[in-house]
């Protein structure tokens, strides 16, 4: 079951909702969520959730917005986005500016 879930995510052409995937796999969406969580623990999927994304990666508060936000949590230009799972890329090939 777990392997099927991962394969279904890998095979998905573009984004898919949890409900669409659960219908496809004939699984309860909440069970499917647990399985996706399992794969994220194993590092195969990456979970993105809501506000943390926009100010991720040791960005100093001053850089969080156009210099007007005083802290990351209150960055006013962030859009609350739903939790999402995507395939973790382990085929990253570093690219240097020289290649440009």
């Amino acid at each position: 079951m777990l392997r099927e879930v991962l394969q279904a995510v890998e095979a998905a052409e573009g984004p898919i909702t949890l409900n669409e995937l659960s219908s496809k796999l004939e699984l309860d969406p909440r069970v499917l969520d647990g399985m996706l969580e399992h794969w994220s623990r194993r590092g195969k999927l990456v979970v993105d959730g809501a506000r943390k994304t926009a100010c991720a990666g040791n960005v100093t508060p001053a850089r969080c917005s156009c210099g007007s936000a005083t802290d990351k949590a209150n960055c006013p230009f962030l859009i609350r986005l739903p939790k999402s799972y995507s395939i973790s890329s382990d085929s990253d090939i570093p690219i240097t500016a020289k290649e440009a």
Binding site: P15, A54, C55, P76, L78, S84, I87, S88, D92
Partner: peptide, 28 residues
């Protein structure tokens, strides 16, 4: 990739946090 849309959506608010948000993308 799917995760690219997060910074792009943030870009409708402000380009600066959106560009920093690209750090979450592991593929260079």
């Amino acid at each position: 990739r799917g995760r690219s849309f997060l910074p792009l959506m943030v870009g409708f608010g402000c380009s600066v946090p959106a560009i920093y948000a690209t750090r979450t993308l592991t593929n260079e």
